[in-house]
């Protein structure tokens, strides 16, 4: 019985799933697109929006992307992951675009592998590589004066990543 499952699992082709969406991310869907009968582990990373930035309260974040290039850069990240961790089965990377309220997920990554080590290492590598190479930008909308209608415009700043280009 278990050998049939193993065979069935290894027959299943590996998947790289990359998506950008202005809808809230479904963690359940990210997880279920990575889970595999041949794997004993799915490692998950979820990036969420923080309520403080440079000492000010954040109202929301706004993301924009160079969408076709995000897909080509993240496909290259998937290829890197597969050459570094050949046992990795499925990779699912979903990033949200547009307005993202505080405490909601802006990015979700799920990676499966037969044993947990590869999946965990690959997920850590994947989020670092995404931050370094995916052309995505977040604008932080901070609260400065709650009475000012224009603050959302005036106080928005483009966050600069501390990770430099390669």
């Amino acid at each position: 019985m278990s050998s049939r499952e193993e065979v069935g699992g290894s027959m299943e082709p590996s998947r790289d799933l990359i998506g950008l969406s202005s809808e809230p991310l479904s963690i359940e869907r990210v997880y279920s697109s990575a889970v595999s009968p041949s794997c004993g582990a799915v490692a998950l990373f979820i990036g969420t929006t923080r309520e403080h930035f440079e000492g000010r309260r954040v109202i929301r974040l706004e993301y924009e992307a160079y969408e076709p290039m995000v897909k080509s850069e993240l496909s290259a990240v998937c290829r890197d992951i597969r050459s570094r961790w050949p046992m990795v089965k499925h990779i699912c990377i979903q990033h949200r675009l547009g307005l993202v309220p505080v405490a909601e997920a802006s990015v979700a990554i799920a990676i499966s592998s037969p044993h947990r080590c590869e999946a965990q290492e690959a997920v850590g590598y994947c989020i670092n590589a995404l931050k370094a190479s995916a052309p995505i930008w977040k604008k932080v909308i901070k609260s400065v004066c709650v009475w000012c209608v224009w603050c959302g415009v005036v106080c928005g700043v483009w966050r600069h990543s501390r990770i430099a280009f390669e």
Partner: peptide, 25 residues
């Protein structure tokens, strides 16, 4: 393409993007 002196050939209909520091994630 980092800003530098290396030769760059453009063709009709090419796309060039201005890329400020990234901040995805």
């Amino acid at each position: 393409v980092a800003l530098g002196d290396q030769a760059l050939l453009l063709a009709d209909g090419d796309e060039v993007a201005v890329v400020p520091p990234l901040s995805g994630g």
